[in-house]
């Protein structure tokens, strides 16, 4: 256990002493702020309009149809996930690839630790770092709660969804990084795998085929949108956990093939 903590500490330290952490955080916060703002603007535009219409029709009218949760929080969270689609491969590309290129893996390989501890350290370290990036976005939600009263449940499941997506993305990134010494290749592999899993549900339009149903089940988006809408289903949790375990298993296979024991 203490070995894993030592590895996590080292990972975090490397993130924070390199400029990458700050650049990525800046990009992420700028984009998520932008998305929050545009969604908010759209909401207030519709809200004002519907309110005027409601005044004329002497009733609630369509005003009851719109709410902050569905028009601001869920789309903004989905946009944040979308940004992670690009950012996770960039953050994860150096993870194992750089160790192999700089030969620092020889230090780790000759230290008394198992390949499982190594993977756990790398994985949890990166996961904590990326989870740290989303922390400031809680402020946006705080603003909404301060000025209005959206439902809390969907916000919580939404954030859980983001965290699960990050956890899945990090496992893909770690696997991609274990395959090669070249960071660019690692980033491209991770990005392609994540993008594929992100868009595969678009096939859904042609229905009735079992193959397509399977592919749709594999789509991250399907499971994520449920959570962003506020429904927490064990099927989605099972999906994410098996996803993560599968890619960590692949990482282990790739590392053992390279002689890690």
């Amino acid at each position: 256990m203490s070995t894993i903590i030592v590895l996590i500490k080292k990972e975090l330290k490397q993130f924070f002493i390199s400029p990458i952490a700050y650049v990525v955080m800046m990009i992420y916060l700028t984009l998520s702020g932008f998305f929050f703002y545009t969604n908010m603007e759209r909401f207030s535009f519709y809200y004002k309009r519907l309110k005027t219409m409601a005044q004329y029709s002497q009733g609630q009218g369509d005003l009851a149809m719109i709410n902050l949760n569905e028009m601001v929080i869920a789309p903004a969270l989905f946009n944040m996930v979308f940004v992670f689609l690009f950012i996770i491969p960039l953050i994860m590309m150096k993870s194992l690839a750089e160790e192999q290129r700089q030969k620092t893996d020889e230090l780790l390989r000759t230290s008394p630790l198992t390949v499982n501890q190594m993977i756990a350290g790398k994985y949890l370290g990166s996961l904590l770092f990326i989870m740290g990036i989303i922390l400031p976005t809680v402020i946006y939600q705080g603003l909404l709660f301060y000025f209005s009263s959206p439902e809390l449940g969907p916000v919580i499941t939404g954030y859980l969804g983001i965290i699960l997506f990050i956890a899945a993305g990090v496992s893909v990134g770690l696997f991609a990084s274990s395959l090669t010494e070249n960071q660019i290749i690692a980033a491209v592999i991770a990005f392609v795998v994540l993008l594929f899993l992100f868009i595969i549900n678009l096939l859904q339009v042609t229905e009735g085929n079992i193959f397509i149903s399977v592919l749709t089940y594999l789509s991250v988006t399907e499971h994520l949108t449920n959570m962003l809408r506020g429904s927490l289903d064990t099927r989605d949790l099972v999906y994410f956990f098996s996803f993560i375990l599968f890619f960590l298993f692949l990482t282990k296979q790739s590392m053992t093939a390279k002689g890690w024991r």
Binding site: K13, Q14, I17, K103, D105, E106, L107
Partner: peptide
């Protein structure tokens, strides 16, 4: 190659 981390 000494297995050192250049950023440490």
């Amino acid at each position: 190659t000494p297995p050192v981390y250049f950023d440490f």
